[in-house]
């Protein structure tokens, strides 16, 4: 097996909030393979953006290691470090993204090219700006090159920020979709363009979203990682997870989502949670963090031991799940239901 392009090993991250310590990520292990489609999903506050920032080196870990092409990024210095920072870019997919209102599209794209000396001289820079706009489908280029952000639609602004991330010729892009990103048509257009970029530019894309249907579309041939309260609870091939989710949380999520099809959505069976309250990160329950809400909770097991990701005993696939009853085989899981 080839070296993963990015690997997180036992990554923890906490923040201080007043006198409290907030554990935002716990024991995250992910190996991102070169050119795979990987999607991180989960509800608000589960730690997706924090994971994205850690992947890009924008945020240090509190514990654990991040490797880029096999090298611990904490050990990178000088050129090596600069190369890593250029190679791994994050795009916040927010329609109200902060593009500098006083800069034209050409300014925004040429600045990083000049700063990192990525294009020879003035003429080379403009040539490259045109190529970038062409890559993100802002064509004809002439219509966009001199525009200011307020003259662009939300979707067009998004394309400009993608083009800006591409100036440094990254090999990994973390695309972090915010909840405020609402227009379906624009979202799909952007996603398709990024999927295209993978093939044209050899970039690996990690897509972060709260929308499982969109995750399914993006990572159909790749993997999905489901996060809950700072931990990965299930990770594996998208098609398996969508068809036959293993972790109770993933099952509940998939059953809860309405479908854009009146008959299907109205006949869908919803799994009821034991509790709708989401625990606060500062008051995480002992054992499995999902146990107070889990419909298959097993007393004296789930509230005692913290489950780790593993392939369940009875499983015919390689999907990893963090659930003790599942891990121990069907007897306990049945007993619990």
């Amino acid at each position: 097996m080839s070296t993963p392009i990015i690997e997180l090993k036992q990554v923890y991250r906490h923040f201080k909030s007043g006198r409290e310590i907030v554990p935002v990520l716990q024991d995250i292990n992910i190996a991102v393979k070169r050119l795979e489609f990987l999607c991180l999903v989960g509800e608000s506050g589960c730690g997706k953006t924090t994971t994205g920032k850690i992947i890009c080196g924008l945020l240090p870990t509190s514990q654990g290691v991040v490797e880029f092409e096999g090298a611990d990024i904490a050990s990178l210095r000088g050129d090596g470090y600069r190369r890593f920072r250029r190679s791994v870019q994050i795009i916040h997919q927010d329609p109200y993204a902060s593009l500098n209102p006083t800069q034209t599209v050409a300014d925004m794209l040429s600045y990083p090219l000049l700063r990192h000396k990525l294009a020879p001289q003035r003429r080379g820079v403009m040539q490259r700006v045109r190529e970038l706009l062409d890559l993100v489908d802002l064509t004809p280029v002439e219509d966009f090159i001199e525009k200011y952000p307020h003259q662009l639609s939300g979707g067009q602004r998004q394309r400009v920020s993608i083009a800006r991330a591409l100036t440094t010729q990254p090999s990994v892009i973390v695309a972090d979709e915010s909840v405020s990103m609402v227009d379906v048509s624009i979202r799909i257009g952007l996603l398709q363009m990024m999927m295209d970029l993978r093939d044209r530019l050899d970039v690996t894309i990690v897509f972060i979203t709260h929308d499982l249907a969109l995750a399914k579309y993006f990572a159909w041939d790749g993997r999905i990682g489901v996060m809950y309260l700072g931990r990965l609870v299930e990770i594996g091939r998208t098609q398996e997870i969508i068809r036959d989710p293993q972790h109770p949380y993933t099952k509940v999520l998939l059953s809860a989502i309405p479908e854009p099809d009146p008959e299907k959505t109205r006949s869908k069976q919803h799994i009821q949670l034991r509790s709708e309250d989401i625990p606060r990160l500062t008051e995480l329950p002992p054992g499995c963090s999902f146990h107070p809400r889990c419909p298959w909770y097993v007393q004296d097991v789930c509230d005692q031991e913290v489950p780790e990701l593993s392939i369940p005993l009875q499983s015919g696939s390689d999907v990893e799940v963090a659930c003790i009853p599942l891990e121990r085989g069907s007897e306990l899981a049945l007993h619990g239901s």
Binding site: S153, S185, I186, R187, I188, G189, P260, K264
Partner: peptide, 24 residues
């Protein structure tokens, strides 16, 4: 029709999606 063909589903196998070109 364009709106409907731009939403992914969970039910179907791989979706054939198409965004609406241009902007409002």
């Amino acid at each position: 029709h364009g709106l409907l063909t731009s939403v992914p589903t969970l039910e179907h196998a791989q979706d054939l999606l198409q965004s609406i070109p241009g902007s409002p």
